[in-house]
Nucleic acid binder design. Structure first.
Length: 358
DNA sequence: TAGCTCTATTTAACCACAGAGCTTT
DNA sequence: TTAAAGCTCTGTGGTTAAATAGAGC
């Protein structure tokens, strides 16, 4: 799948990617600091493979968002290399984005293709670079991208998957490697509805801290909190998810689309609306929505999360018959009540306060 | 190559009940 | 306007039947 299209169409959203300073034809893939030049993969290999001195030129990837400037930081949460401008724009958008851990981009000396492979390996195969090598992902991305592209783009029969010398790969495989086939740009509203804040916390915890949200569980590896998995903490998972959704909605309104229905309608008809692709406002809106979607996708969790720890506790202690919940017998209920009363009294005696009766 | 059988894997439904949230008084 | 009572709905986990996929003949 190639996002890059015929000459003149340029990069995504109609924003032309910066052209290679050498061949003037292909989109620039990287920036050579020594030469102060933007180069495509082919020209990079040619220029920096010419001699030993040239091969020691430090190069950095282009910004994955604007494709106009060299990347200056790598955002771990977004798994994307960003230029100064895009970094500022994106990470000042909302509180969650501001928490993204970013590290200065590391220049590389090896040829672009090798650097890509290294980056892909470093990302554990799931990184933002070189994902086009995965055929299944490529198909899914193709489908997803087909929903997003402002205009239908015929597949490029000359493009081979994983052929890194094809600079066209960059725009598609780098940028859309994050696009989920289950594209749902209206995800925020639906999730907001589903996880209403008033129903998203374990009540006991919320009360215990007097309304102040407990600190989120951090990843055991000490990594950045934006990507950490909560360990048995429904509060963390859902309060975080909600904050993402609500903040995104606040930052990037759907504009003229008029809410969820409109947004979805726009997605389902990406080619609709004559002249939309050429409408800067529409493009910006589209860009914002895709960015919002990517942000959500980064925080999406597929593992089961527990919203109510107390209910989990009840469920685990509840009698079952062939896996199904069974009614407690009167005797069991009586024992349970006695135990609960005794436990409550014990806790009161020790100053723990009264716990909800089982 | 199509059709059938068998095996392995995945998915969804079922159950009772505590508690949140809403409505009524 | 506030508080209390009553009602409705949600979420929780282990088991199992049903559905699906794959292999072999």
């Amino acid at each position: 799948m190639a996002c890059e299209t015929e000459e003149g169409k340029g990069g995504y959203w109609g924003l032309a990617a910066r052209r290679c300073d050498s061949c003037k034809g292909s989109p620039a893939l990287l920036f050579c600091r020594a030469d102060t030049a933007y180069l495509c993969g082919t020209c990079d290999a040619r220029v920096h493979g010419a001699n030993k001195l040239a091969s020691r030129h430090e190069r950095v990837w282009m910004c994955e968002v604007c494709e106009q400037a060299p990347a200056s930081v790598t955002c771990k949460a977004d798994a994307a290399a960003l230029c100064v401008s895009c970094d500022a724009d994106i990470h000042s958008a909302n509180p969650l984005a501001r928490r993204h851990e970013r590290v200065p981009v590391v220049a590389f000396l090896e040829p672009a293709a090798s650097a890509l492979k290294s980056a892909a390996a470093a990302a554990g195969g799931g990184g933002f670079l070189f994902k086009g090598a995965d055929h299944c992902d490529e198909e899914n991305e193709a489908e997803a991208a087909s929903w997003l592209l402002p205009e239908p783009i015929p597949p490029n029969p000359t493009l081979k998957v994983g052929t890194m010398e094809a600079p066209e790969l960059k725009a598609a495989d780098y940028f859309f490697s994050d696009v989920d086939p289950y594209l749902d740009l209206d995800y925020a509203s639906s999730m907001d509805a589903r996880f209403h804040p008033t129903d998203s916390v374990v009540p006991v915890h919320a009360k215990a801290v007097g309304g102040t949200p407990p600190p989120p569980f951090l990843a055991s590896d000490g990594g950045d909190s934006t990507r950490s998995k909560p360990s048995y903490s429904s509060y963390t998972a859902h309060s975080l998810s909600h904050s993402v959704s609500s903040s995104e909605v606040g930052v990037v309104p759907d504009g003229s689309c008029g809410g969820g229905v409109g947004a979805m309608a726009d997605v389902t008809n990406p080619y609709g609306g004559a002249g939309r692709a050429g409408n800067p406002a529409a493009q910006m809106d589209r860009e914002a929505r895709v960015m919002r979607y990517r942000e959500k996708r980064k925080n999406r969790r597929f593992e089961k999360t527990i919203r109510y720890a107390s209910r989990k506790a009840y469920a685990e202690t509840r009698p079952r018959i062939k896996g199904r919940f069974a009614k407690r017998t009167e005797r069991e209920a009586e024992v349970d009540r006695m135990y609960s009363a005794a436990a409550a009294a014990l806790m009161v005696d020790h100053g723990y306060g009264v716990v909800p009766s089982y």
